[in-house]
């Protein structure tokens, strides 16, 4: 009984996700797969960000920089060096991780708003730099030769492949997120989130622990960047380092409930469904951004703990189960 209770959160989470993943496979429809691809991508990105934002309490506004940089490095390897998707993804993840490590040593000293600003600055600097970086195609970016997809069974197959790889990565993120949340390392992060100075006095090596949280939260977005642009076929600075995308990730984490494993999943799902609905609704189509803005405001003002946080506060039984 108590073990079931203990793992209930994880079981529910994985169950929800499995259903999500299986749905397009069952229907076999491309359109469902595309929708789910967007949702899973959001789930994985939001959950990664949650390790830093939700567990550690550091607001990274420019998290998309890891998605973009990883994407660029991987894409370059695939298009210019003829490397496989797998090696490229690995390289994308590693480069994002290394960037996070170096950045972490520098900017994680900044607190609150200053850290948020610095992450924006880093993303903009990177975007502007890539814009000028000729090996990566400068402002026009790079495209993938169509023949590359042949190695993966043709373009159609490559889309399905991307989908399953994404699903696998999403599971990995969730497991990492869960392991972190329930580990000693994660406890250190939560302590930092609650009161960094007090945490240090209790022995948490905050500079180190924060840096590793940052690295962890960057690796998977770096790999996802490679996958996303592989599927996309081309890469350009603007979509790779879109600040707005970063902020959308934060919104998803907030919506579902920061600092919980389940929150970012629900948040990403909710956000993308809502967006899909607004974009196709004849009434809201033109003002979808404004409607999303109003919703965000309502959440920030009235449900700051997000869906999962709200449930945990209201229903004490769920406090243990929903993590």
């Amino acid at each position: 009984m108590s073990t079931v209770r203990k793992y209930l959160g994880l079981i529910v989470t994985i169950g929800v996700l499995l259903m999500l993943v299986a749905w397009p496979a069952i229907t076999g429809k491309d359109i469902t797969r595309e929708t789910t691809f967007t949702i899973l991508l959001s789930v994985a990105l939001a959950s990664s960000l949650n390790i830093l934002l939700g567990y550690t309490g550091y607001v990274s506004f420019g998290h998309v920089v890891f998605f973009g940089l990883g994407g660029y490095v991987g894409f370059y390897l695939m298009s210019a060096q003829g490397m496989s998707l797998w090696i490229s993804m690995l390289a994308g993840g590693v480069s994002a991780g290394v960037l996070a490590f170096l950045l972490g040593k520098a900017i994680l000293r900044l607190r609150g708003g200053y850290f948020a600003l610095a992450t924006i600055g880093i993303n903009e600097a990177m975007r502007a730099f890539i814009n000028n970086f000729e090996p990566f195609g400068g402002p026009t970016g790079m495209t993938l030769n169509f023949s590359v997809y042949r190695d993966y069974g043709g373009a159609g197959q490559a889309l399905w492949l991307s989908y399953y790889v994404l699903a696998a990565l999403t599971f990995i993120v969730l497991i990492v997120s869960y392991l972190v949340r329930t580990s000693k390392f994660g406890l250190g992060l939560l302590a930092i989130r609650e009161d960094e100075d007090a945490a240090e006095v209790m022995g948490v090596n905050a500079p180190n622990v924060k840096t590793w949280a940052y690295v962890l939260s960057a690796i998977i977005p770096g790999m996802l960047g490679v996958l996303f642009f592989f599927k996309n076929g081309s890469i350009e600075p603007a979509p790779a380092f879109r600040l707005h995308f970063s902020i959308e990730m934060i919104v998803m984490v907030m919506l579902g409930g920061q600092g919980t494993v389940l929150g970012p999943i629900l948040g990403a799902y909710g956000y993308q469904s809502l967006r899909g609905f607004l974009l196709t609704s004849p009434i809201f189509k033109d003002i979808q951004l404004a409607v999303a803005g109003v919703l965000l405001l309502v959440i920030v003002l009235f449900v700051p703990a997000g869906v999962v946080g709200w449930l945990r506060q209201r229903v004490p039984v769920l406090r243990r189960a929903l993590q």
């Binding site: 607001v59 609150g112 902020i247 979808q288 951004l289 109003v294 920030v300 700051p304």
Partner: peptide
């Protein structure tokens, strides 16, 4: 509230203005 709240609150105004 923590920084994140005011950042997101003002960002929601950003979205509303841009959207409209």
């Amino acid at each position: 509230a923590p920084h994140l709240s005011t950042l997101l609150a003002t960002f929601s105004i950003n979205m509303i203005i841009i959207g409209l």
